[in-house]
């Protein structure tokens, strides 16, 4: 690795731009691949196609010819609706697990009073905020407010997005009512089946932190099942 490549790589990662570093492990020569290619390693067009396909599917590994491809993808995102108690535990836990976390809540007092100093926050209504964050297939959306005014617009936006995980806090009864409202809003049962509700793995969690563990575990389980 030379310093130029390392600096370029850091700058790409800081800008959250997907890229790959391709290494000839015999010679140590390398090429940094984005839309363009830089570095002292020459890549044949067919190899370059393979590398770009690997960037798209976030798959690092050794190619048939022996070159090693390390794909750098922006972190998986988690969008949390509601700066509530569970969010105060879930946000830092998810950050530790490598997620890029954003909390959405229009209630500034909730965002400020919570222990969320190190978490990105959008103080706005979920429909506008979801427009800004644009969940993609590497995004998990978790609603925690218990308040249909806040949760439902976020769930609608999430259901219209390719988010890999959608979870909604609430009991079975609350969730049944929620599904009725979403049906009235025009979402079929097949679509609303994407929502994990009640949210989280069933580990009999009771405290906010325990519930956060069950949610994060479920998000990871879904993420890894998709990757497998």
């Amino acid at each position: 690795m030379n310093l130029d490549n390392l600096k370029q790589l850091s700058s790409l990662r800081a800008r959250k731009q997907p890229c790959a570093l391709v290494t000839d492990t015999q010679s140590g020569k390398q090429a940094l691949v984005t839309d363009s290619v830089v570095g002292d390693l020459e890549l044949a067009p067919a190899i370059l196609d393979t590398v770009r396909a690997r960037i798209a599917s976030d798959r690092s590994g050794v190619l048939d010819g022996g070159l090693f491809v390390r794909v750098y993808s922006p972190p998986t995102r988690m969008i949390i609706i509601g700066a509530v108690h569970i969010a105060q535990a879930l946000a830092p836990m998810a950050q530790l697990a490598g997620f890029d976390v954003t909390v959405i809540d229009p209630r500034e007092a909730f965002v400020r009073s919570g222990n969320l100093a190190n978490v990105a926050a959008i103080i706005d209504w979920p429909d506008d905020a979801m427009e800004k964050v644009q969940p993609d297939m590497r995004t998990a959306v978790v609603t925690l407010t218990h308040d249909p005014k806040l949760d439902d617009p976020a769930l609608c936006a999430a259901l219209r997005s390719p988010a890999f995980y959608i979870g909604a806090l609430g009991s079975r009864k609350t969730h049944a009512k929620r599904l009725d409202r979403l049906k009235d809003a025009g979402f079929s049962a097949a679509v609303t089946a994407r929502i994990h509700g009640p949210v989280g793995l069933d580990i009999d969690a009771s405290s906010p932190a325990e519930i956060a563990v069950s949610i994060l575990a479920q998000v990871i389980a879904v993420l890894r099942a998709e990757a497998a």
Partner: peptide, 30 residues
């Protein structure tokens, strides 16, 4: 990688180790 850059910036000589392949159960991914 961030640590690597900080060390280089303070004048250290450095190397980078990367897992390139794994077989069976291994603790850290490629």
């Amino acid at each position: 990688l961030t640590q690597l850059q900080e060390w280089i910036a303070s004048g250290h000589k450095t190397a980078l180790a990367t897992v390139i392949a794994t077989w069976g159960s291994s603790p850290r991914p490629v």
